[in-house]
């Protein structure tokens, strides 16, 4: 009983922590938010401004997200594909020998 109450207390604590963190986030579409600025705090250009200004001109693609994923950050996407593919390969290695082990154990279902 005490343990269960402790669990709920921990859960409520984490929920409160998350809610407190959410309060600090800028509003959706807020132009003054740091991520929507044209320049960084140190004065350099941000990549987001470059993407929005140049995506259509450089790749003739209206969907900026596709240009960012497929062109500007294509090495990152290559990594994602390799991760998915590796997961498939690992599944082959893990599950191919499963039935043989069953047979050695006696083969009963």
């Amino acid at each position: 009983m005490l343990q269960k109450g402790f669990k709920w207390l921990v859960l409520a604590g984490f929920a409160a922590l998350m809610a407190w963190g959410m309060w600090g986030l800028p509003d959706r579409g807020d132009l003054d938010a740091p991520m929507n600025e044209k320049t960084t705090i140190t004065g350099g250009p941000t990549p987001a401004a470059h993407y929005i200004e140049k995506a259509y001109k450089e790749a003739k693609t209206p969907n900026i997200v596709t240009v960012v994923l497929g062109d500007y950050r294509s090495i990152d996407t290559l990594g994602e594909v390799v991760v998915v593919f590796t997961a498939g390969l690992i599944l082959i290695v893990l599950l191919t020998n499963r039935r043989k082990v069953h047979d050695i154990d006696g083969g009963e279902q």
Binding site: K57, G70, V81
Partner: peptide, 21 residues
């Protein structure tokens, strides 16, 4: 510009094949 357009299309097909498989 259209080379990049086509390149994006080609890699999207590759991604689709790999994910489906």
């Amino acid at each position: 510009e259209y080379l990049r357009y086509t390149g994006i299309l080609i890699i999207e097909v590759g991604v689709g094949l790999a994910v489906m498989a």
